[in-house]
Design a protein around this nucleic acid. Structure first.
Lengths: 197, 197
DNA sequence: TGATAAGTTGACACAGTGTCAATTGACACG
DNA sequence: CGTGTCAATTGACACTGTGTCAACTTATCA
């Protein structure tokens, strides 16, 4: 039955997400995932053509489970540029830890896997688009500090919000995600906001 | 002769650096390096026990060739905290592109290789220490903005200067290293400097 | 009863790292 | 002149993980 196909498929995806979260995205093999899903390694290949494809599907699955659209809604509904900016940072900052395992695995797979690299890239470009929208909103409110063009401000905001920055601050430096988010908001406001008036 | 040993060893290191630079640190195999050095793959193992060890040696070799100490001297000789901070960013910002190939390879090897992960970590901790010294200098000048403790300011500066940020801005965003350095300096001054007085 | 489709088992190709043993070739020393 | 030493070579091989293939099982639907 097709409902069983779907069931197995999502058991695999659940197992993938769980394993990657548990191991910080490192050293999780196809066989480990299969075992965690209670099926044979080969059965995984009946549903996903390659490890990269599985990882990509897992990120999509996570987006769905975590209801990405609902989380994005507040920043999209913001009435001012500043609000949009801070709400977007809020969203993304709290989203990173939830997807970190899968994201890290995808990031590491870039080394050997062209498809994984492309998928990660796509993902980051989507995030960039959120940054662009926030900066654009600020700009059309006339609140973007004059030294910035929208393009360069987008570059800068995007880079600030990259996963490795969160990873370093919360991992190596011991910051909480809450502290991370607070700093990113302050930094973004100080950097991009035109205070004159 | 021991001079020949040294000669071969450094031919390997040169080849390693060259190959990694050419390929952005990706997909360079032991055999490729051997071929580039004009010896057999096995001969590489006569000088370096593993790929990770070779990569670590290559970073040390590069530090020597590029005269790390000389480059570090200006910031160490700075007379004020602000000067120390900006000169350190100058140093590091211009150093990254020179070591990028090797650094990226080490970063990617973290996935499979424990030793590579440890080596990269060491490296980053050394960089952190430079950040700490700059922040400390600022602090003892009474110029560190009051909302920062030295530890948290060090965390923040260190994270800002991480390789992936340079990678993203110069790679994906098309910034020049000069633009990158300029922005990092501005950002650091705005963020950490106490302007009151 | 028989077709279809998911899943299982086990074998295998392939790439890349690292190991091992036997051999070559140069050079130094008595 | 012969001998020992040592870097380097060649070729074989173990190991790990991904991905493929073929034969077989099981359940469901018609």
């Amino acid at each position: 039955m097709s409902s069983e196909i779907i069931e197995t498929r999502s058991r695999i995806l659940q197992a993938t997400v769980r394993m990657l979260e548990e191991h910080g995205g490192r050293g999780v093999r196809m066989g480990d995932i299969a075992k965690a899903a209670g099926i044979s390694r080969q059965a995984v290949y009946l549903h996903f053509a390659s490890r990269a494809e599985l990882l990509v599907a897992a990120t999509r699955y996570l987006d769905e489970v975590l209801d990405l659209d609902r989380r994005l809604a507040p920043s999209r509904a913001a009435t001012s540029g500043v609000e949009r900016l801070t709400l977007y940072i809020d969203f993304w900052g709290h989203y990173i830890p939830k997807i970190y395992g899968v994201a890290k695995a995808l990031l590491l797979a870039q080394d050997t896997d062209e498809a994984a690299a492309a998928a990660w890239n796509d993902r980051m470009l989507a995030m960039r688009d959120g940054c662009r929208a926030a900066i654009e909103a600020l700009h059309s409110n006339g609140k973007l500090a004059p030294e910035w063009t929208p393009k360069r401000a987008t570059d800068a905001l995007w880079t600030m919000l990259l996963v490795p920055n969160w990873e370093n601050l919360t991992g190596e430096c011991g910051w909480s995600t809450r502290q991370y988010v607070r700093w990113m908001k302050t930094l973004a406001k100080r950097t991009f906001l035109d205070e004159s008036e």
